[in-house]
Design a binder for these strands. Sequence first.
DNA 1: CGGGATCCGTTACGATACTG
DNA 2: CAGTATCGTAACGGATCCCG
Lengths: 222, 222
Amino acid sequence: MAGSRRYRLLCPIARALDRIGDRWTLLILRDLHAGPARYSDLKSGLTGIASNLLTDRLQQLIDDGLAIKCDGEHGVTLYALTGLGARTRDVLFELAMFGGRFPPDEDPRRPGNLRTIAVTLGVACQRAVTPEARFEAELKVDGEHFTLSVQNASVEMRYAPAKSPDVVMTTSYEAMIAASEGEISLDRFQKDHVEIVTHTPGKEAELMTLLGAAMTLFANES
Amino acid sequence: MAGSRRYRLLCPIARALDRIGDRWTLLILRDLHAGPARYSDLKSGLTGIASNLLTDRLQQLIDDGLAIKCDGEHGVTLYALTGLGARTRDVLFELAMFGGRFPPDEDPRRPGNLRTIAVTLGVACQRAVTPEARFEAELKVDGEHFTLSVQNASVEMRYAPAKSPDVVMTTSYEAMIAASEGEISLDRFQKDHVEIVTHTPGKEAELMTLLGAAMTLFANES
DNA sequence: CGGGATCCGTTACGATACTG
DNA sequence: CAGTATCGTAACGGATCCCG
């Protein structure tokens, strides 16, 4: 049962962990930050999770008010973050900043989809954005489509194709990880691992400037 | 075994959780942020942890380079954070910011000591500090002594009595939690739940200004 | 008494299979 | 697609015991 292994302490850290500290919970939240998702989207993005666990965790997120179940387009059920659930962004970002310090496992398990990208890169862009930047970019990472919308110093990253992108950038998950953690330089990343198609002239530079600044956040010393 | 239940994903969040995501690990780190601690300090601060788990977790922290075992004064063994381990501060702080949004359990378990306070309040003071502030304060919380040293916009919080405090402030853990989460106002906190003894005139105001600003960080909207 | 190690009953997890 | 059911295994919690 969910209530048995709780800390039940006054400490706010323990209170947080009692909601989001269980195995898989933070990774589910991570994927939900890419936008509403179906059960099977989550299952495929969370490599290795058992279905009963995904069910349990989603239910706990709903009970705690971090997520809701809602109806999507063709009668499909979607899970989405609530406002409270969206507050986990900074926790996830700091976790990513910390986790980036460790070398990746030699044979990492591949996720079935790349929703995983959205939080980390989204928050990093949010912190790096300048008020002048304004564009809609489509990021194609290993064939999956993300939309990065920037305007008035506000950034949104969604796991969906863009409607009318100013720029389309194509790259790979591995290259993004390597670049953000300093394994390859930003120049090398851009030259060797990125293809850009510009629809609105100039917007390509805005995108690369923002991505460069965002990735620099992870290039932490020592 | 420690390696069996790891995510082994490329995602930096998952990589972080593979080191610090196990049950109790983040709370152990939390207590270590108050300064080097003995096995039994940790055991008593972490209400309810089993000894084998504490041993396992400490060993894992050492293996991952987040903590080290070292020798203290009277031949006692101490556990301390490494530089890498100290990098968990911001993760813990964001967890505290998030956890503070949930009402405390009705009958929370009491910790055997209050090392738990150090991270949260320490980071909050660090973020709220102004360059002019400079003092050494002793915080006596439920009879336990902390030292808050402030100089040159740098803040240190240790679980130890102060050598020559400019101010001594006495209060309770519950009142601090209540004030930092907006249950009682800062004024009421200061008037009803705090006793101050000033040794260096004026420093008392500096302390209360800093604490007020720090606690305001937690008073997040909605 | 500090610093653990060992044992054991219970619980959660992971894998797979199955269902509306 | 969205889960439920089952089951072996690994981790947890509590207690006790050990050793310098």
